[in-house]
Amino acid sequence: MDRRQRKKLQVQKSIVDVAIKLFIEKGVDETTVAEIMEGADFGIGTFYNYFQSKEDILKYALAEKISEVKRSLEELNQSSANPPQKISQLLLILGKIFEENQQLFKLYRNQSLSPIQPPHGPEFRDFLVNVIREGQENGEFRVTIPIEMVTEMFMGLIQSAITSRSLIPFQENLEYKLDLFLEGLTEKK
C-alpha cells in the first residue's frame, strides 16, 4: 500500500471513528454530517469522497467487523487446534467481537438497514460444518447427532448469550453455555 492509500484509509477511519462516537452519543438521525466532519477535522466535502450517507458509515463499520471475524476464521482454520478447541475458540471470538461492538450492532439494527452478509454466512457455516465433521470422524464428537442440529444449537448459544437477562457477565455466560454444549457434543469414552 502506497502513502496515498494509507492517507485515504486514515481519513476514512477518522471519519468513521468520530461518526460512530457521535451516533452512540446522539443517535444517527440527530447527528449531522457537519458535526462528524468538524470532529474529524475535515471539510464537509471530504465526507462525500468516502461515503454517500451516514448510513453508509454504519454499513462500512459493520463490514469491517465481519471482515475481522472472517480473518479470525481463516486463522483458526489454519491452526493445529482439535475440533473441540476450534468450536470453543470460535464461540469465544464471536462473543468477544459482539461484546466489544454491541453499540455498533444496536445502531445498525435500529436503522433497519439492508442486511450485510453476516459473520454466520456461508463461510462461517462451511467452517463450522467442517469442524463438526472432522470431530465426528476423529471420534471426538458424537456421530448420533446430525451436523445440522449441532450447527443450529451452536448458533442458538450465541443468540442465547446475546439476549440473556442473566446477571452473569456476557463472556462468562457464553463460557458456561459453551461448556454445556461441548459436554453434550463430545463422545463419551
Rank of each mutant, 00 (worst) to 15 (best):
Y176K: 09
G184I: 06
Q111K: 14
I57C: 03
S114E: 15
T32R: 10
L174N: 01
D41M: 09
L182S: 03
E148R: 14
A40P: 07
A161S: 14
D56H: 13
L94F: 12
L180F: 14
E55W: 03
N101I: 11
Q52D: 10
V16H: 02
D2Q: 09
S114F: 09
V33K: 05
L22N: 06
D126I: 12
F23G: 02
K106C: 06
M155T: 06
L185N: 02
R125T: 12
E137Q: 15
G43I: 01
S72F: 12
R6S: 12
S53N: 08
P169W: 04
R3V: 13
E175N: 12
E183N: 13
Q85D: 07
Q12L: 08
K188M: 08
K54S: 04
S67Y: 11
G45S: 15
V16C: 00
Q12R: 15
A19E: 00
F141N: 02
S67G: 12
M155H: 11
Q12E: 15
E137H: 12
V18T: 14
I57D: 00
L185M: 06
E137C: 00
I36Q: 01
I168D: 00
T151K: 07
L104G: 01
Q85V: 10
M153F: 11
F47N: 07
L167S: 14
G184N: 11
K26Y: 13
L94S: 01
G121W: 04
E183M: 14
F181C: 01
V11T: 15
K65T: 05
E187G: 00
A81C: 08
R109H: 11
L22T: 06
T186F: 04
N82S: 13
R125Y: 08
T32C: 09
N110F: 11
G121M: 00
K65G: 02
D2Y: 02
K8V: 05
Q102S: 06
Q159E: 11
L94I: 13
Q52E: 12
A161C: 05
D17V: 11
F98I: 14
I36N: 01
S79I: 09
Y176L: 14
I24N: 00
P169R: 02
E55S: 10
A63G: 12
E74T: 12
P84L: 09
A61N: 01
L94W: 10
S164T: 14
I97D: 00
S166T: 14
A34N: 10
D29H: 12
I57F: 06
G39H: 06
I168H: 00
E74F: 08
L107P: 06
E35I: 07
K7W: 07
V28M: 02
R133K: 15
D56G: 13
Y48M: 04
E68K: 11
R133I: 12
L180W: 07
L58V: 10
Y48C: 09
D126W: 06
P115R: 12
T31M: 09
G39F: 08
R125V: 15
L157C: 01
E55L: 07
P83D: 03
K188H: 08
M153Y: 10
E68W: 04
F124L: 02
Q78P: 01
K7G: 00
V11P: 00
